[in-house]
Design a protein around this nucleic acid. Structure first.
Lengths: 118, 118
DNA sequence: GTTAGTAGTATCCTTTAGGTTAGTGCTTTT
DNA sequence: AAAAGCACTAACCTAAAGGATACTACTAAC
């Protein structure tokens, strides 16, 4: 039995569920954009919004909350005056490296393939 | 410069687009289930529907069409009577191996992490 | 003291993915 | 001759994701 995903095997249901979980965490329209901006450095709420073209504060707020719940982002508040809220990528976010790399490679390859076909 | 996805780099936009493309192809509620059943062997429309619990013919039809457009599935028609329509995974579908493996590994790991945290 | 910025929340609206049900034109089985 | 299976499509509906806009409570700058 290799390292391959056994999509045809009897126990593949848990594999599919794991994939669904992963897709849920990084899926959605803005999750990866948020992660991408935070890779440039820690940022504050409005700073992120300005960096990502087209995202509304409501949606950004939701995205950040979910990323935080999944341990990919932390939110720190300095309670001096003025209050400064800052968002950071966690070390844990680095663990997405392989996933993002393989998605990017496949996506690039696939786009090329589709383009060439017509 | 490593093989890493440069989510913070200036040229990261194309990386993000590639990832979006990949997510679009395998995203959606049923795509991977369809691929999974077809891994068991070639199947006919109603056979696939019976194998995947809860999918309606309309949705299955859409999923199959998109998978076909992306070259992951082929549809063959034997025009003898009765007409037999069969769906197959293509060799190209194998190219998703890395993507699915890394998604599965990360998803499994992440689920564990989240479970342990409470 | 007015204007602008920060970090959001509240309310409402639109779009899209997906679900439900029925039906079509065909053939095979009983 | 009737019932059931095949491979779908059509028409309609619902729920969830996401978008638009306004507003709050606070501070800082001009």
């Amino acid at each position: 039995m290799t390292e391959q995903v056994m999509l045809g095997a009897p126990k593949c249901v848990s594999a599919l569920n794991s994939i669904d979980d992963a897709l849920y965490v990084i899926g959605g329209k803005w999750k990866l954009r948020v992660i991408a901006t935070l890779r440039e450095g820690n940022k504050r709420f409005n700073e992120i919004q300005r960096n990502i073209n087209g995202i509304s504060p409501r949606v950004l707020s939701n995205e950040l909350r979910e990323l935080e719940l999944n341990g990919l982002v932390t939110r720190t508040v300095q309670t001096q005056m003025p209050v400064v809220v800052e968002y950071h990528l966690t070390d844990y976010a680095e663990s997405l490296g392989n996933v993002l790399t393989s998605l990017m490679e496949w996506g690039t390859m696939h786009r090329d393939k589709i383009r060439k076909e017509r």
